[in-house]
Computed example of a mutant assay.
Amino acid sequence: MLGLQYFRFEELWTPMFLFGMAAIVILYYYLIGPWREKNAPEADAATKLQKFMFVSAAIMFYMVHGGPLNLLGHLMFTFHMVNMSVSYLVVPPLVLLGVPSFLWRKIFSAPFWKKLSFMMHPIICLLLFNILFSVYHVPIVHDYVMTHFSVHRLYYFILLVTSFMMWWQIASPVPEWSRLSDVKRMAYVFANGMLLTPACALIIFAKTSMYAIYSDPNVWVTAMGYCVSGDPSRLLESFSGPQFFNIMDVVEDQQLGGIVMKFVQEIMYGIILAYIFKQWFKREHKDDELPNTNTGTA
């Protein structure tokens, strides 16, 4: 159970967050159903695959930010990296592809969005996400963010927004808004992989514990204050610190976390590369599939 039996139901499952995610899923089905039929009847209906991707993204996002994985992320660095991987490498492309293009057009139809269009330049999106993600894993930054609630929420929100901006360039849900050709999108994926590698390598090859919240009981208790009710210092009366819950050595846990991050990154980028290549291949061979209309005799 990895120590989860020591925590209360509401600490493990965060009911209010669950209700919030359920409301988002209900709103999604309303928008692609009754709202579309009334306001955009000419738009294509959401496919079963799109519905599956969106609901899957909602479930995963809940699990890593409101479910048991959120709590486990404060006990073991490996689970923290699972949460980061799911939040910023898995959920955004699923949401982008799961929401029908007519909804994206409606959401960004307001004129004021054009004033912010410069922020969607592919290079800006590429650098913003990767710099913010890499800086977050600098030990002093990571420990500060994890132990200051307002900063924690703000930094995670900005990371989520920039991850959507970055993934938009790759999995553009509105074809006519895409700024990159298929070949450039594939290069963009490779660039993302290269920029994330140093942060992963730093974690994987470190020989000592880098993050105080997984080795210092007092820092850990401060971070746990966002997961448990009441005075978090009570945890030290029963447990020695995060090591009590960790089934591995702190450094081994840290290294495994870096490996998990790199593994998920490679899997997701591999899948998206295959998706882009498939789209490119279909477009390049579309003319070959058309019937030949010039077969008549002169």
Rank of each mutant, 00 (worst) to 15 (best):
A171M: 11
D143P: 13
S163L: 06
I140R: 13
D182F: 11
M146E: 05
E176L: 07
P175K: 11
S163W: 01
S172V: 13
Y155F: 07
S163Y: 01
T162E: 10
F157P: 08
T147K: 08
M186F: 07
S134K: 01
M186W: 03
T147V: 12
S178N: 14
I140E: 14
M186C: 10
R153T: 13
F164M: 01
P139Y: 01
S178G: 09
V174S: 00
I140F: 04
W167Q: 06
V141N: 10
V183G: 04
W167H: 05
V135D: 05
Y156W: 12
T162A: 07
S178I: 10
D143H: 03
M166E: 02
R185L: 02
L159K: 01
W167Y: 12
S178V: 05
P175A: 15
S134Q: 00
P175S: 11
I158H: 01
H152N: 11
F149V: 14
S163N: 06
V151C: 05
K184L: 05
L180G: 06
H142T: 01
V145Y: 02
P139W: 00
Y136K: 09
M166T: 00
E176P: 05
V145M: 06
I170E: 04
F164H: 06
Y144K: 06
V145F: 13
H137W: 07
I170G: 06
M166S: 03
A171K: 10
H142I: 04
M165A: 10
S163T: 10
V141R: 04
F157Y: 14
S181H: 12
Q169G: 07
V138S: 03
V145K: 06
H137P: 09
R179P: 07
Y144C: 09
H142D: 02
M166Q: 04
P139T: 05
Y144L: 14
T162F: 05
P175E: 14
Y155H: 09
V161K: 03
E176S: 13
F157W: 06
H148T: 15
L154V: 03
M186V: 06
S163E: 00
V174W: 08
W177G: 03
M165N: 09
F157D: 04
M165S: 06
F149I: 07
S172R: 14
W168R: 13
Q169I: 01
S150L: 15
P173H: 09
P173S: 15
F149W: 11
T147Q: 10
M166V: 04
Y144R: 02
I158T: 15
V145S: 13
M166C: 02
H152E: 01
I158V: 11
V174T: 07
W168S: 14
T147N: 04
L154E: 05
F164I: 12
V183K: 15
V161G: 09
F164V: 07
Q169S: 11
T162Q: 00
D182E: 07
D182Y: 14
Y156G: 12
D143R: 13
